[in-house]
Each structure stands twice: as structure tokens, then as C-alpha cells.
Simulated scan of single mutants.
Amino acid sequence: MPRRNSAQLNIRSAFACVRVREIARRTGMSATEIVEDALRGYVPMVEPEAVGNLVRRGPLLVLPIGNRRKVRLAEANAALDATRDRRS
């Protein structure tokens, strides 16, 4: 007996499972058809382009290290203490 080669996708998200069932009930489509249709229409977000002197670090745009003033631990603690001592 030949073995069937069928692809399978397991959805572990409770939200996705419930939502697919709702859409299937309303449209009469199968869960597979719904997922295929959603994937055909999906367009991934474009990554942001560098602006000014920002540089890319993974998916983020950040200021380069060389352009920032270094803050010492004592300065940071003094600023935090001053802010904590202020009364609102």
C-alpha cells in the first residue's frame, strides 16, 4: 500500500484556532482554504530605511554609539536620586 504524502500544519494559537473555526462556519470554506487564502494575501512589513545618522541594529534603527555622550554610573544615579526626591 503506497504511503500518502500529505503536508500538515499544526496551529498552536488558541486565537487562531477559534478564528479559523468562526470564518469556516461563516464562509463554508475549510480551515486549509482559509489559511491558504490568508497566506496568499499576506505581505510582510518592509523594514524601516535608515534616517539621518541612525544605523540598523537588527530590526531597530538606533543612534550610533560614537555620536552619544557617555553617562557614568555616578551621574545616572545622581539624576535618578534627584528625580526621586522631587515632590509632585
Rank of each mutant, 00 (worst) to 15 (best):
N53F: 04
I34P: 06
R57L: 04
S88I: 07
E75V: 02
G58E: 01
C17M: 11
I11P: 01
A38R: 07
M45Y: 11
S6C: 03
L54G: 00
A31E: 15
V46A: 15
P48G: 07
A38M: 14
R26P: 01
S13H: 05
D37Y: 11
N77K: 11
N5P: 04
V46C: 08
L54D: 01
A74K: 13
V55G: 00
V18G: 06
T27W: 07
N5G: 09
T32L: 09
M1P: 13
R12D: 11
S13E: 12
T83S: 04
F15A: 11
R72G: 13
P44M: 08
E22P: 02
P59A: 01
R40V: 04
G58T: 01
M45W: 10
P48T: 07
V62N: 02
V20H: 03
L63T: 07
L80N: 04
L61I: 03
R56D: 00
S6I: 09
A38P: 03
E22M: 13
I23E: 13
A78S: 06
E36S: 10
A82M: 02
R40F: 06
V18D: 14
A50F: 00
P64E: 07
R72M: 11
A14W: 02
R21V: 05
F15N: 08
A38K: 05
L80D: 05
A76G: 01
A82N: 08
R87I: 09
I11W: 01
V51T: 09
I11F: 05
A50Q: 13
A74I: 10
R86S: 09
R19D: 12
T27L: 10
D37M: 11
V43N: 08
Y42K: 05
R84F: 08
T32N: 10
R3A: 14
R25D: 15
I34T: 08
E33H: 08
Y42T: 06
N53T: 08
R72E: 14
N5Q: 13
N77T: 05
